[in-house]
């Protein structure tokens, strides 16, 4: 009962106030100052309308931006997937890239071309007599596909690159011993060193080569028919050349 009465009072009061306003506005036409104020209010309303239109256009533009951002997000996701796939499927036989302490190499690595340059490995132990040991580069899939079928028989790309890796190990081991100072050599290494010196010829001077004994000494490969087939393949791919003399077959790294 009380609330109803209060509502009735407020309603009545509101009506009275509206009537008062209307009566007061009735005399606007008579006063010029009030007329100018009214026109100003109209202009303000028009400008507000224009601003709202511009705001609407801006919203549309933002929608387009949003869609382009979504596309960008999708493409970035695709690239991310590609990178993930590359990371997960890194080939097992990639040429080694040395990251030296010098700052000159760092910017070279960025354009990715130095990665293809296939720099040889530098030994760290003898820093004073640091020398470059030439290694055999892995064959590429194109080169492998270019090998004739009769020569390839049933060998696979990975098998050949595995053999290359072993040969590189043998080469590095051999020339580490050669580059080692004689004072620090053990008797076994001294004997090997002597054999290495004896195997040198005019044709192989200044070049890195190995013989079958080195393969047996430094690796676990078996020098069998399969090994010789792989040697032929490497010779076909111009990774290797044979120099024969004195009952030995020297495999020169080219």
């Amino acid at each position: 009962m009380a609330s109803d009465l209060e509502q009735l009072c407020s309603y009545v009061n509101e009506k009275i106030e509206n009537i008062k306003k209307i009566l007061s506005l009735r005399k606007l036409g008579q006063d010029p100052t009030l007329k100018t104020t009214l026109s100003k209010i109209g202009d303000e309303i028009i400008t507000v309308n224009e601003l709202l239109n511009q705001f609407e256009l801006e919203i549309q533009y933002q929608e387009q931006t949003n869609s382009s951002l979504k596309e960008l997000c999708k493409s970035l996701e695709e690239e991310f997937k590609d990178v993930e796939h590359l990371k997960e499927h890194i080939p097992s036989h990639l040429p080694q890239v040395t990251v030296t302490q010098s700052s000159t190499h760092k910017p070279d690595l960025d354009p990715k071309e130095s990665v293809k340059a296939e720099e040889p490995v530098l030994p760290k132990k003898p820093p004073k007599e640091q020398r470059v040991i030439k290694e055999m580069h892995f064959i590429t899939t194109d080169e492998f596909s270019g090998v004739p079928a009769y020569m390839k028989s049933r060998l696979t790309y990975c098998q050949i690159n595995d053999v290359i890796k072993e040969i590189n190990k043998a080469v590095v081991s051999k020339y580490k011993i050669i580059h080692q100072p004689k004072a620090s050599m053990s008797s076994v290494k001294r004997n090997l060193y002597q054999r290495f010196i004896n195997e040198e010829t005019k044709d192989t001077k200044g070049r890195h080569f190995i013989v079958e004994a080195d393969i047996k000494e430094f690796t676990t490969l078996k020098v069998d028919k399969k090994f010789h087939v792989i040697m032929n393949i490497l010779r076909h791919c111009q990774r290797l050349s044979e120099v024969r003399g004195g009952g030995l077959t020297r495999y020169v790294i080219t």
């Binding site: 008062k20 306003k21 009566l23 007061s24 506005l25 009735r26 005399k27 606007l28 006063d31 100052t33 009030l34 104020t37 009214l38 100003k40 209010i41 303000e44 309303i45 400008t47 507000v48 601003l51 709202l52 511009q54 705001f55 801006e58």
Partner: peptide, 28 residues
């Protein structure tokens, strides 16, 4: 007194519109 009240009403309305305009400008 009604005349004074009408003027006041108009001023209030004008100020209200201006504030609205400023808000829209800010948002834009």
């Amino acid at each position: 007194d009604f005349e004074d009240s009408s003027a006041r009403i108009l001023c209030d309305l004008y100020s209200e519109v201006q504030t609205l305009k400023d808000d829209v400008n800010a948002h834009l």
